[in-house]
Write a protein that binds this DNA or RNA. Sequence first.
DNA 1: GTATCGACCTGATTA
DNA 2: CTAATCAGGTCGATA
Lengths: 232, 232
Amino acid sequence: MPANHFVYQTQQAWIWDTTMESYHRHQNLHLGEEIMNCEKEPMFEKPLTPSDVGKLNRLVIPKQYAEKYFPLDAEAGEKGLLLSFEDENGKLWRFRYSYWTSSQSYVLTKGWSRFVKEKQLDAGDIVIFLRRRGNGDRLFVGCRRRGSGQDSITAASAAQSPAMQWNHQSPSMPSSSYLYLNSIPEEEQSSEATVASTGNSKKLRLFGVNLECGHLISGSQVMNRNASGHHL
Amino acid sequence: MPANHFVYQTQQAWIWDTTMESYHRHQNLHLGEEIMNCEKEPMFEKPLTPSDVGKLNRLVIPKQYAEKYFPLDAEAGEKGLLLSFEDENGKLWRFRYSYWTSSQSYVLTKGWSRFVKEKQLDAGDIVIFLRRRGNGDRLFVGCRRRGSGQDSITAASAAQSPAMQWNHQSPSMPSSSYLYLNSIPEEEQSSEATVASTGNSKKLRLFGVNLECGHLISGSQVMNRNASGHHL
DNA sequence: GTATCGACCTGATTA
DNA sequence: CTAATCAGGTCGATA
């Protein structure tokens, strides 16, 4: 898998970078922005179904992505994992991730409904999962509104090869949430998933999403979902 | 409850018998008819409600019958039981049986919807539960269409004391399905519920049900069902 | 009492 | 056709 990364640049916009060098080029950014300047490899995205944002309090993760990005070993298969993600504000979101044998599906359960509520997600909105490879991946989660840039019209195809779409991203990245990954064998360990909290507080509403992570962006063009033909 | 049994007699019709002797009187029947020649004690029957045949995928078993015929001990109350029933074709039907505390009701859940579909049961049709006492009861399940024999007119009262209706049953028993009971602590054990598979292949349509288990019956009065009936 | 969570289940759809 | 997937449900336990 090629490592195309996108980087969030202070005072500018989201840009794409295909090398790890960009990470180091931006080390001069101040601490509060550190988290936003890591290369984030898009993993996948999913247009949310009514059930994903409804009373079921769970997000079904398409099996192909689940097994690719969140593999569960035998032990973890028992009780699932606790995955920690960071959003665009540096806020940590911890979701229980597990496999339901009865439905043969992978799900985020505990914590997911709070995310839906706080982000005010509706059916058709798109949740995006990214990671930053490293000494223990960091996981990020973002979302954007349906109709933002690529809209619900392209949502279906987006689900087919969402990860690659990021590689065709314009500098103005409409995605808004990112997260820190932490695989924890299970149960409470609240401070385990330490993640650099962004210290900035500028707020901006972009593509229907409230951003609070710094000096942003002149959003000009957005992800063109269907343009991507290849996949990870 | 007195042990009135009804016995299916070769070349004849359903008859009633109140003693176990009838069972031995019929031991000379050949193997293929064995399953059909056991005394089957009617336990109860229930006219199906719209919910019983709808998308709730469950059959509510009236508490009085549930507690009488399918008692749940403390352990079984946890996960319920897996009950195996045989129908008129010798086909095995496995239903999960459990108690729902929320509704204070006993239900058949898993497996029930498949039965409804295959038998094409509709609201008002009547499901009948029988058993053959022995070394571990055998359970049987049957059904008949509303309007067959005692019809929907008596359905309501039937729900009150359906078991008793069997005692007033005419010799021509319109019931068509029987089953083998097997109480299993739960989970898969496919060969556990071994039931005598009828080795015969004579086919006959009786009471709207295709029978394949032996040399049967001169069905004089049959269920007046839609001629198409169900298939197997 | 209400909301959430975990486990289980099923039918429609599709590969 | 079968098999796999998953959207949309259930109940019961927990907080």
